[in-house]
Design a protein around this nucleic acid. Structure first.
Lengths: 261, 261
DNA sequence: CCGTAGTACACGTATGTACGAGTTGAGGAG
DNA sequence: CTCCTCAACTCGTACATACGTGTACTACGG
């Protein structure tokens, strides 16, 4: 590794030393002096360069990690985070013409982009929905739902977890309540059952992942998630599915078209 | 403050002590034992309770702060983050019927929700666009754009920064190039100039804020941002504006309607 | 009664030390 | 030549200590 030219500390500045150091390294990353995947000087080297204690260096590195700029690997070093190729989700991704090709949206898209899609951890239960799901589906406290949860992976890398809720009255006993929901996915099944889909509403939040989500999606520290809740409505105006998904934010770009009229 | 009932450490666990402590406090927050805005026991008290060094406690608190669950206030204590009321952005927010009311989208919405909207830091320049903006607008390297940047606040709290790019050929000399763009905002001006708007395309990313963004939006540590790029297209199929906005993720829920056909 | 100075307490920054644990590569044994 | 051991280097965890700086309450004095 060539010598990384880091500036010296400014003793007259009232900015904390560890912040100054974080600034130096951040600048190096943003200006490409430290490229993606490249190794940041070790804690020991930085201590020597700046003449400060190890904790000061670690504080600085922690700042960068919190910003999602670096990842520390135990025993190897600290590296500039490399961003994986992103999936771009277009607003027509659930259009019927795609569904009629016989593949679920995720599989079709991923293969189209040259990736190897996998779905695992499929679990199906019947239960009483939470208050928010019940409200979205227009159900009362007495109704129950079929809950389909699963995890999506691209080339073995988890990118998204999803949980669908369908009124049990609709889905019970159908293929929707089985692990393999068949060609075209559950939206195709819903239409076969006479629920002609009209539109979806998606609500998007962004936040830091919970502990379980961090594990399920193998997220690096400092990577937020999209939390997306999609509700499917039929032409009759009835909500027939709610899908609650959590997506790694650095695997996705969401794209929507809005009317101006 | 009543005594917070925290469990003891599990010495047989191979989970790091500071992680165990973070888990305890996180559980207390998630189960509502520690409510929003409530104070987490001080570092000194936690040291005493667990019988560990201050650094161990600080590491634990840092974990929670990185997850966006708590905020430390110098001299006061550590508090459970309270989430501000969120603005829900609907996909019809740029519909013409709203525009014709004479108010810009942001102002109308905020007042409707009972908040006091402000716009500040309005800066207007003419410059050569970046490659990505030029591509979205379909411009060549020789063309320049009018750049309108501003910051939006609700009740004095900054929630969003936005930068619009409009081809200079369209906007130069018009009210679009002036700080006060007039009733209905720049979309109304564009339509008056004969550019009838047809639709918008929004691309949404989520990531941790840069330093400047953190300052401009007064973001707490551990709060990600939405990065939204909207392109406006006319009925003639021409892109007439690109708007690049950064929004505090805990002030917004984005909502979109997708066709199923 | 009010204002202010002082003090206790809170988190922020920084130093130094020690040991644990994962990774890597060099060098020796077979 | 190959395999294995071991040393060196890396980050992870944890201890102890000190002082700085912002906050809030109390007690004193005017």
């Amino acid at each position: 590794m060539a010598e990384l030219p880091l500036p010296d500390l400014d003793p007259t500045s009232d900015r904390a030393v560890f912040r100054q150091i974080a600034d130096h390294i951040r600048d190096a990353i943003e200006q490409g002096v430290l490229a993606e995947g490249e190794k940041v000087p070790s804690e020991a080297r930085l201590m020597q360069h700046y003449g400060v204690a190890r904790m000061t260096i670690r504080n600085a590195l922690q700042v960068l990690q919190g910003e999602g700029l670096t990842v520390a690997e135990h025993g190897r070093g600290v590296f500039v985070r490399s961003h994986p190729p992103v999936r771009r989700l277009a607003s027509d991704r659930f259009a019927r013409r795609h569904r009629e090709q016989g593949k679920a949206a995720f599989i079709a898209e991923t293969e189209g982009a040259g990736g190897k899609p996998t779905v695992d951890s499929i679990k199906i239960t019947e239960e009483v929905p939470s208050a928010s799901v019940a409200e979205l589906l227009g159900l009362t406290a007495a109704d129950s739902v079929i809950r389909r949860s699963r995890r999506y992976l691209i080339n073995g890398q988890p990118v998204e977890t999803a949980v669908s809720y369908i009124p049990a009255e609709i889905a019970r006993g159908t293929r929707i309540a089985e692990p393999d929901s068949g060609p075209g996915g559950i939206y195709a099944r819903l239409e076969e059952l006479g629920h002609r889909l009209d539109h979806f509403v998606e609500e998007i939040r962004s936040r830091m992942p919970l502990r379980d989500e961090m594990r399920a999606l193998k997220l690096a520290p400092g990577v937020p998630v999209f939390h997306l809740v999609r509700t499917a409505y039929t032409t009759a105006g009835r909500a027939v599915e709610v899908c609650d998904t959590v997506m790694s934010s650095d695997a996705y770009v969401l794209s929507y078209e809005l009317p101006a009229r």
